[in-house]
């Protein structure tokens, strides 16, 4: 379980302090799929980085399974998927997947086993020996997800993983991600700026606004856990999407005044 309470984060820049997060409180339960949505500059990525112990809040408390984020990081609880795949170009797909396993000191046979398993999981069979730059954007993201799943991280943190992909590929990967989530029972925190993507994937949607970065709405999704792309035409789906849109708009109008 992740709990964020009254977190403030101020970056000191050359143009003075920037309030990246202001009074942010929220919770993520085990097995949740939580999306953070908002325009750029709303602090959604910063919040994800705070949870991953890549940033330290100026004020407030964050606990991850009763540990501090840094302890959780050292306990290797996080699988992080970056926006631009973040694959190492000098390693093949399977080399990239083995990277965390090498660092965490898995045995050779276990490295092979786990690599094969996650390659099956993300359906990259036949591409193990390819280099990242030989793959399409969608395949790179799948390899990146496989890498995050290879070790036993409980929490998957995904920072706009499908942001650079076209809508058709994104739809397919969204469906696959839901399948993965159901099969692995991980807790997923997912940053996006697409409303349909957030509503389709999440059990909980955190709507955020910029200047200062803050939460304007938290929506518990009534949609069933098992869903397919057709659900996007249902009334509940449209109602949630509407509420997300209103949350985003509320953040904007406050900004004007």
């Amino acid at each position: 379980m992740i709990s964020v309470s009254d977190v403030n984060l101020t970056f000191e820049t050359n143009d003075g302090p920037v309030n990246a997060l202001k009074n942010v409180s929220m919770e993520v339960n085990e097995g949740d799929f939580v999306s953070f949505i908002g325009p750029s500059g709303c602090g959604k990525t910063t919040l994800l980085r705070v949870i991953a112990a890549l940033e330290t809040p100026t004020e407030g408390r964050v606990t991850v399974n009763n540990m501090t984020p840094d302890e959780a990081r050292k306990a290797r609880q996080y699988g992080y998927v970056f926006q631009a795949a973040g694959l190492y170009p000098w390693r093949t797909v399977s080399g990239n997947i083995k990277l965390p396993l090498e660092i965490m000191g898995y045995s050779t046979s276990e490295k092979e086993d786990r690599t094969r398993k996650v390659i099956d999981l993300v359906e990259l069979n036949g591409f193990e020996k390819k280099f990242p730059w030989q793959l399409s954007g969608g395949m790179q993201q799948r390899a990146s997800i496989a890498r995050a799943l290879a070790f036993d991280a409980n929490i998957l943190l995904m920072d706009e993983p499908f942001g650079a992909l076209d809508e058709i590929v994104r739809d397919r990967l969204n469906g696959e991600l839901l399948n993965l989530w159901a099969r692995t029972r991980k807790t997923i925190c997912f940053v996006t700026h697409s409303i349909p993507e957030a509503v389709f994937l999440s059990t909980k949607i955190v709507v955020m606004s910029p200047r200062p970065g803050r939460i304007t709405d938290i929506i518990e999704s009534p949609l069933p856990k098992k869903r397919d792309l057709n659900i996007r035409d249902s009334r509940e789906f449209i109602k949630i999407a509407q509420r997300v849109r209103e949350g985003l708009k509320a953040g904007q109008t406050e900004d004007v005044f």
Binding site: R49, A52, A53, L54, R73, K74, R76, Y78, G79, Y80, F82, Q83, A84, G86, Y88, L99, P100, E102, I103, M104, L157
Partner: peptide
């Protein structure tokens, strides 16, 4: 982001040096 990745793995200085 490649550096952050190493941090989330809690990789040591030497591991980061050699592998990244």
């Amino acid at each position: 982001s490649r550096q952050d990745l190493m941090r989330t793995y809690s990789a040591s200085y030497t591991q980061t040096l050699i592998k990244l």
